[in-house]
C-alpha cells in the first residue's frame, strides 16, 4: 500500500442544527503527495472549507460531528490525535490560508504582532528568537507577497489594509514558516491578476524547491488550469470527478463539471450564462441517491435511489455518475431509440 502525505478516507463531517444534522461532507476521498499541486473546485457551500477544517481539526467541536472517516497524515489518523499531537501538526506540518481574512486576522493587533506570533508558535521548540530576528523574518514574508513598505505594514492594523493586502498577509502568515502541506482556501479572490500571477509563481517555487504539497481551493477554473496538476470536483459534499488538469478541460465527464464549465464568463464575450438549473441541496434531508439528481438533465430512476460510486473511466480519470456505468448506458440507449421512433 502506498503511503500518501495526506490521505482522506470516506470522511463525513456534519453540523448540528435545530432541524437535525446537516449532513454536509458525505464520504470524501482525497490524497496528495509531497511536491504535488491539486485543486478543489465546486459549488458554494458544498463543503470544501468544512473538509479542510476537519483536516486541521479546527471545526467548532460543539457544532461539528464527524460520524465516519479517517484522515491520515503520514499514516497517522488526525481524527484520533490528542490535542498535543494536533498542536504539533499545526505548528510543523500543515498550514492553511483562510478564506476569510477578516476572520483570520485579529482587528485589535497589528499585522506585525500577528506575524510574530505565528513565527514564535511554529518555532517554539527551537531557540527563542529576539525581536530583531522576528522583524527580519516578518519583513521578508511581507515582501515575498509583493506588498511595498513592509516596515510600515508591520505597524498597521488590519482595517488599514485593502482587501487584497489582508489576503496577502494571510498568505504571508501561512508561508512564513514553510510546512509540508499548504492548504490555500480561496487565496486570490481580492488580488488583481498580475499579483495573483506572482503569487502563483511563489507557490510553484515552494512546491518545486521545497517539495511542499499544495491544495488549492478556488472558484476560478482559470486559476486551477494554470496552477495545479490534478483537479477534484466537488458537489454537495461528494467528490464527483477527479482528473489531471489537462484531461478535465479536454474531457469533462460529470454533468455537474460540464455545467460548471459552461458558466465561466469568457474573455471572448458572449454574455453571461443562465447558471445551472435548480437550487443548492438540503443537507438536513439529503436524497439517498445522487445528490445532483434534482438538477441533472440526464437523471434516471436509479439516480434518485442509489448513490453512484467512483468509477475509473480512463487512467487517472474517475467519475461518480451512473451515466458511465454499463447498465445505465444500455438503458439509456434503449430509451433514446424509443424516443427517436416516437
Amino acid at each position: 500500500m502506498n503511503e500518501h502525505l495526506l490521505d482522506i478516507r470516506n470522511l463525513k463531517s456534519w453540523y448540528r442544527t435545530y432541524q437535525g444534522y446537516a449532513q454536509v461532507v458525505d464520504g470524501v476521498n482525497l490524497t496528495i503527495d509531497a511536491g504535488k499541486k491539486i485543486g478543489i473546485v465546486g459549488e458554494s457551500g458544498c463543503g470544501k472549507t468544512t473538509t479542510m477544517k476537519s483536516v486541521l481539526r479546527v471545526l467548532d467541536e460543539r457544532k461539528a460531528y464527524l460520524p465516519e472517516g479517517e484522515i491520515l497524515f503520514k499514516n497517522q489518523n488526525i481524527l484520533k490525535m490528542r490535542e498535543t499531537e494536533l498542536q504539533q501538526i499545526r505548528r510543523k506540518n500543515i498550514s492553511m490560508i483562510s478564506q476569510e481574512p477578516s476572520a483570520a486576522l485579529n482587528p485589535v493587533f497589528t499585522v506585525g504582532q500577528q506575524i510574530f506570533d505565528v513565527i514564535s508558535y511554529s518555532t517554539q521548540d527551537d531557540t527563542a528568537k529576539n525581536k530583531k530576528e522576528l522583524t527580519d523574518i516578518a519583513i521578508k514574508a511581507i515582501r515575498d507577497v509583493f506588498i511595498p513598505d513592509p516596515e510600515r505594514i508591520l505597524e498597521c492594523y488590519p482595517h488599514q489594509l485593502s482587501g487584497g493586502m489582508k489576503q496577502r498577509i494571510c498568505i504571508a502568515m501561512a508561508l512564513v514558516i514553510p510546512r509540508e502541506l499548504l492548504i490555500a482556501d480561496e487565496p486570490g479572490t481580492a488580488l488583481d491578476v498580475t499579483i495573483q500571477d506572482q503569487i502563483h509563481r511563489l507557490l510553484r517555487a515552494l512546491v518545486d524547491e521545497k517539495q511542499t504539497a499544495l491544495i488549492m481551493i478556488t472558484h476560478s477554473l482559470g486559476v486551477v488550469r494554470e496552477l495545479v496538476d490534478q483537479i477534484y470536483v466537488m458537489y454537495a459534499g461528494n467528490i464527483v470527478e477527479v482528473a489531471t488538469t489537462n484531461e478535465l478541460f479536454k474531457n469533462p465527464l460529470h454533468p455537474y463539471t460540464r455545467g460548471l464549465m459552461d458558466c465561466v464568463p469568457r474573455l471572448s464575450g458572449g454574455g453571461i450564462s443562465a447558471g445551472i438549473y435548480g437550487y443548492v441541496p438540503d443537507y438536513v434531508h439529503p436524497t439517498p441517491g445522487c445528490r445532483f439528481s434534482p438538477r441533472c438533465p440526464y437523471v434516471k430512476e436509479i439516480c434518485r435511489v442509489q448513490k453512484p460510486l467512483m468509477l475509473e473511466i480512463d487512467e487517472g480519470h474517475t467519475v461518480a455518475c451512473f451515466r458511465y456505468t454499463d447498465s445505465f448506458t444500455e438503458q439509456h440507449r434503449q430509451e433514446e431509440s424509443i424516443g427517436e421512433r416516437a
Binding site: 479572490t189 472558484h219 450564462s273
Partner: peptide
C-alpha cells in the same frame, strides 16, 4: 458592488 461575486461559484455568480 465591491467584488460582489468573488467568493461564489460560477453558476451562482451567473444567476
Amino acid at each position: 458592488l465591491d467584488e460582489p461575486t468573488s467568493s461564489l461559484d460560477v453558476s451562482i455568480q451567473a444567476k
